[in-house]
């Protein structure tokens, strides 16, 4: 198992959002997480990545306890997180974004890894001297995904990569996620509102309601959205 979460409780200051979540992920697996707004999906990712200290419970990464570990340590261990919305540095150029996300690594590694990102997203190479904030919405999302790849993560947390994008761009971003999983064999925990997109990408699904897992299991491609409504 690459990730095991046991009875995770967490939230913001005095507000409890997660009420004892437990699940696990295997190597190379893509797990989709869906739920209403305010269900606790983003809080879950932030707690797993170390941006929010968990209140109770345990997070194991390759059987090592990483509960409450700081993001910088998690990044070094091969865990990456793409936040919701603008997961980039809008005032830095595309190349500076890649450089800075490779912080602490040598120039040769930076070159190799930025080349990997450019292979996946050729448009970013064309725009490498452009300020990231001036890229289109779809290009910005590609940039965000590209940044998470710079440390060659084995486990990626992606928070709503389709948010605010046109349907055609959403398709493209999802195809990129499938390609990343195929090429790098990394595990991806994907938070999405868009169930149809989750179905395309994920092999397993977790449904969260009010900070609790109400359904988890293998995602049947024939599963209809309406069949999941009973959990909401």
């Amino acid at each position: 198992m690459i990730l095991e979460v046991k009875n995770l409780v967490g939230g913001y200051q005095n507000k409890r959002v997660l009420h004892g979540l437990s699940f696990s992920m295997g190597d190379g697996e893509v797990v989709g997480t869906i739920g209403h707004n305010g269900a606790g999906k983003t809080t879950l990712l932030k707690s797993l990545f170390g941006l929010l200290p968990p209140w109770e419970g345990q997070i194991l990464f390759r059987s090592h306890d990483i509960t409450g570990r700081k993001p910088d340590s998690n990044v070094k261990e091969g865990i990456a997180y793409m936040p919701q919305g603008q997961g980039l540095f809008p005032d830095l150029t595309v190349m500076e974004n890649l450089e800075i996300s490779c912080f602490g690594l040598d120039r040769k590694t930076l070159k190799k890894r930025s080349q990997q990102v450019f292979e996946l997203f050729p448009i970013l190479e064309e725009r490498k001297r452009q300020r990231a904030g001036t890229l289109s919405g779809g290009e910005q999302r590609m940039m965000s995904v590209g940044l998470t790849l710079m440390h060659e993560p084995t486990l990626m947390f992606l928070d709503e990569p389709s948010l605010g994008l046109a349907p055609r761009i959403v398709q493209l971003v999802m195809e990129n996620i499938i390609e990343i999983n195929r090429r790098f064999k990394n595990s991806i925990l994907l938070v999405e509102q868009n169930f149809e997109q989750v179905k395309r990408v994920a092999g397993k699904i977790i449904v969260i309601k009010l900070g609790q897992i109400v359904f988890s299991g293998i995602l049947d491609p024939a599963l209809d959205k309406r069949e999941l409504w009973k959990y909401f």
């Binding site: 941006l51 998690n74 980039l88 440390h151």
Partner: peptide, 14 residues
């Protein structure tokens, strides 16, 4: 400059 531009993202990349 990265911290100025997006402090949360700066933490995210380590």
């Amino acid at each position: 400059r990265a911290v100025i531009s997006n402090p949360e993202m700066a933490e995210v990349i380590g």
